[in-house]
Amino acid sequence: MSGLSTTLPPPRPVRTPMSTAFGWLVKYRGGISARLLLWLLLLYFLAPIIWTIASSLKTRAELFQATPSFITLNPTIANYQYAIKRLTGFDLFFRNSLIVTLGATVLQTILATLAGYGFARLRFKGRDLIFYTMIMLIFVPRAGGLMAQYELMSFLGLRNSLFGLILAFSAGLAVPVFIMRQSFLNLPPDFEDAALIDGCNRFQAFWYVMAPMATGSMMVVALFEFIRVWGEYLFTLTMIDNRELFTLGIGMAMQFLGVSMEFGEFTSYGSQAAAFVMASSPVAIFFLATQRWFVRGLMEGLKF
């Protein structure tokens, strides 16, 4: 009887909900080793990026040191000036990329939102059949690949046209429509019903009540499309022959790989690095500006 209190085990340390399978690593030396391991793994993601940014800021002497340094000690913007001057058409490529990317992103987000709402909220004949046909085509092998698309774009007179690129890119609607439908399905129907009873028509109920509540998913769709189109290479390369209409991706690859002689020599890797940084900055800025919505939207929209 008297021994009861003394034989009880000491109270267990309080475990936080997140002390998961690797809790031992975090506890070990106050989480230092887990963090070090994580930082080491993250270095794999970051190293080429850091190296490129550092190279773009280095002077000629620093670039050709026997042992290149990881960071630069005397940053200079000479590489950027040189890249803009020598990479003929850089501003043109940049403008083309911007037109195509913004056009495709805006068009696709609008279409996917409208369609997602229609598939989620309206009852009409053939609704599910159309939706599941779109989804099922994701799984059918693309045997035609670029060939069938080349044929189609030539037939429609959309080769060598930025507008053609916008249409073709924004047509990749299966996943965006899926995301938007899912997001409208997750919203409570009461708001919409109230709006309809109060005399809104369908479009007003969509525009004033439902769409504002789905902005998180719209950001996810827009971000995915922006990233995809800004970085696209092979389709653009196949559809565009006219140098005036090159996007940044193919313009740079042509120049740096010496594919085409008309671009002249462009070998200094400091200025190449500067061009890489400039070519990536719009998408990086867009991502950093929207990433807050992105992770949240992904967690809400893609719950499985």
Partner: peptide, 26 residues
């Protein structure tokens, strides 16, 4: 048939674009 007119107005543009540039090439 339900709200077919509204339904097709909402999904129509996306479906048409998808059919031309995505489904047809497949």
């Amino acid at each position: 048939w339900g709200e077919s007119i509204a339904g097709f107005l909402f999904v129509g543009p996306a479906v048409v674009l998808f059919l031309i540039f995505n489904a047809y090439p497949i």
